[in-house]
Amino acid sequence: MEVRTIKVFTTVDNINLHTQVVDMSMTYGQQFGPTYLDGADVTKIKPHNSHEGKTFYVLPNDDTLRVEAFEYYHTTDPSFLGRYMSALNHTKKWKYPQVNGLTSIKWADNNCYLATALLTLQQIELKFNPPALQDAYYRARAGEAANFCALILAYCNKTVGELGDVRETMSYLFQHANLDSCKRVLNVVCKTCGQQQTTLKGVEAVMYMGTLSYEQFKKGVQIPCTCGKQATKYLVQQESPFVMMSAPPAQYELKHGTFTCASEYTGNYQCGHYKHITSKETLYCIDGALLTKSSEYKGPITDVFYKENSYTTTIK
């Protein structure tokens, strides 16, 4: 009895394709271990004539594949690729409408935090270190965002349907971005203890939790000093293409032309909904596939993004 075979390709990165001759009487799992086709788990399936010449994702289970996976995804987590594939199996079914010149995501599976993050990423200057993220990001900007969303979920250790947080998501993504040249110098002034300067680099240099107003941050924000008295913390120097200011959701007025974009969060910790506000020729609110415009805006804002380049204080 002759062994019926077909020729397929296996890959971990969709760049390096490895030619395989597979036995049609055995499952993919018996031949390769966990195997995925377009995100779908085909591990328990036997090869079919229609699979001839198709590319299958496999887990990096030998040295060659491990090197290829690390170079593309910059992670050695053995569960990463499987999590990416199972997320992709959902995100490829989502709709990605162009809204006001940006790629958004039609609401499904509690994905409003991903839509808000995706919209924000198209408006701030950011370059990702893992080629996987950078490639998928370019495709997302062009309207094909399924891979990018699935990668975000995998890097953030999230599953489809789980509630997510924009600030946490951005923080994970910033860790995989090139923020080497970003720098922030802060000064804390206390009447009792004097003053202390701190220099922050990388992710810490672009994120701040405690106030939404970048102007206020430049002037000074009140913080408790270690001595128990009130101290003032203010920005001395900022070198970065953008800054992200966050605070627990509270009524906040966004003035046209003073910011790049913002995240609105309605609801409580267990259950809520994100919308995205962007400042173009007027203010726009993007909620999944829905767009509304207004000249002014007041609502429960939790993150505001500002364009920056270089700032030095005039406070002496």
Rank of each mutant, 00 (worst) to 15 (best):
G202A: 02
P248T: 09
F174V: 04
G257D: 14
H51M: 08
D135I: 08
V99Q: 08
N100F: 05
Y284A: 12
T278E: 03
T103A: 06
E162G: 06
M244E: 02
C227S: 01
Q197E: 13
S104A: 11
H273E: 00
V99S: 08
C190M: 01
Y96I: 04
V236E: 06
P131C: 02
E239S: 09
N49F: 13
H256L: 14
S263C: 12
I152Y: 03
Q237M: 12
G202D: 01
Y252M: 12
T75E: 09
E168C: 07
S79N: 11
Y72C: 07
L121I: 12
I152K: 01
I15S: 09
L114D: 01
F217R: 00
P130H: 03
H74M: 09
T199E: 11
S181D: 14
Q175M: 08
L163T: 15
T116Q: 05
G194W: 04
C149N: 04
A108Y: 03
Y274H: 02
T282Q: 12
G39V: 08
V185F: 01
F217D: 04
L235F: 01
Y297D: 01
A154D: 01
M244K: 08
T64Y: 10
S86V: 11
P130S: 06
A140Q: 03
K44I: 15
D165F: 07
L102W: 07
R167H: 09
E239H: 13
Q195Y: 10
Q230C: 03
N49R: 13
G33K: 02
N187W: 08
D109E: 11
D77V: 04
T19N: 13
N110T: 02
G210M: 00
V160E: 04
F56W: 04
P300W: 13
R184Y: 01
S295D: 13
P249Y: 00
T292K: 09
G101D: 06
N89W: 09
S171K: 14
H176K: 08
R66G: 10
D180C: 06
A247G: 08
C193F: 03
H273W: 02
L37V: 09
T19I: 14
R139P: 05
F242T: 01
G194S: 02
F80L: 06
P248V: 06
F80M: 03
K7M: 05
T169R: 03
H18A: 07
Q197I: 09
H256G: 12
L119G: 05
N147L: 04
Q195G: 08
K95Q: 15
G288Q: 01
M170Y: 04
A289L: 07
F9S: 09
E308H: 05
T5P: 10
N49Q: 12
I15A: 06
P248W: 12
L59I: 10
Q20A: 13
H18V: 07
Y96D: 02
L235T: 02
R167L: 04
G210S: 04
Y155D: 05
I6Q: 11
Y265R: 06
P248F: 15
R184P: 01
S294H: 15
Q31R: 11
L118G: 04
I301T: 01
E308T: 11
G299N: 03
E215Q: 08
Q270S: 15
K233I: 12
V58D: 06
C190N: 00
V99A: 08
Y265I: 01
Q196I: 09
R66K: 14
A231D: 01
N89E: 15
F174W: 01
E68V: 03
Q197H: 05
V67M: 14
S310W: 08
M209N: 15
V160A: 07
N129H: 13
S171P: 00
N178M: 06
N309P: 14
G29L: 07
V3Y: 12
Y84M: 04
T258F: 07
V304W: 00
Q195E: 15
D62C: 12
A154N: 05
N147I: 08
T55I: 15
Y113M: 02
S310R: 14
S213Q: 03
Q122D: 05
G161V: 02
K7Y: 09
F70D: 06
S294A: 12
D41G: 08
L119C: 07
K191T: 13
L179K: 15
Y138E: 15
M245P: 01
Y57K: 05
G220L: 01
S171R: 14
Y172Q: 10
D180F: 07
I315T: 15
Q175I: 06
S263V: 13
P241I: 01
V160S: 03
P78W: 15
Y234K: 08
G210E: 01
I277V: 12
L114F: 02
M209K: 15
Q197A: 07
T64N: 12
N129A: 10
Y214G: 01
L200G: 03
A142R: 14
K298G: 07
H176W: 15
D180M: 08
K54P: 04
D13W: 02
Q123W: 03
D38L: 09
L17D: 07
A145S: 03
L200Q: 14
T64W: 07
D41E: 10
H51W: 05
K233G: 10
L212K: 04
K275P: 00
G299H: 02
S294P: 11
Y214K: 01
D41S: 12
C112M: 05
T10Q: 09
D109W: 03
N129C: 08
L173N: 02
V185W: 02
E52M: 11
S310V: 14
N89T: 12
L254C: 00
Y311C: 00
A140V: 13
N268G: 15
Y36G: 04
K316N: 15
F259Y: 00
G228F: 02
K92H: 07
N61I: 14
G210V: 00
K316F: 15
A132N: 06
L173G: 02
G164Y: 00
I45G: 13
K255I: 12
S246E: 00
R139Y: 09
E2L: 10
S171H: 15
R4W: 12
I124Q: 05
R83D: 04
N100Y: 07
K255M: 11
F9I: 09
V58Y: 05
I277S: 00
R167W: 02
V160F: 02
A136C: 05
L290H: 15
N157L: 04
T35Y: 05
V58C: 10
A117V: 12
T103E: 02
Q270G: 14
L17C: 07
T27Q: 12
R184H: 02
Q122F: 05
C112K: 03
Y113S: 07
N16F: 06
V189S: 10
C261S: 02
S104G: 07
E264I: 14
Y265E: 00
Q30P: 06
N110Q: 02
V188P: 03
F56N: 02
R83H: 07
E168P: 02
H176Q: 11
T75A: 09
F9A: 11
Y284L: 15
E296Y: 14
G53N: 15
K307Y: 09
H74Q: 09
I6A: 10
V206D: 01
E162D: 14
S310C: 09
C190G: 00
I15P: 05
Y284I: 15
Y269Q: 15
Y252Q: 09
C227M: 00
Q222E: 13
S310G: 06
A231T: 02
K255D: 09
L151K: 05
K7G: 12
P224N: 15
H273S: 00
D38V: 11
L37S: 12
S79C: 14
D303S: 01
W94Q: 01
C182P: 03
A154Y: 01
M85E: 03
A87S: 08
N16H: 14
I286C: 02
C227Y: 02
M207C: 08
K7S: 12
L212W: 04
T198P: 01
V67G: 13
K201Q: 12
Y73R: 03
Y311Q: 12
D180G: 10
A154H: 03
E52R: 11
Y265H: 00
S310L: 15
K316E: 15
E144P: 05
A154M: 03
H74Y: 04
P131I: 03
S240T: 04
P241L: 04
K293G: 09
A247V: 03
C149G: 05
T27R: 10
Y311V: 08
T55H: 10
K191I: 10
P78I: 09
C271L: 14
C156W: 01
D41N: 10
V185N: 01
L254R: 00
K191P: 14
F128A: 01
N61G: 13
D303W: 00
L88R: 03
I315D: 15
E71H: 08
N61L: 14
M209Q: 14
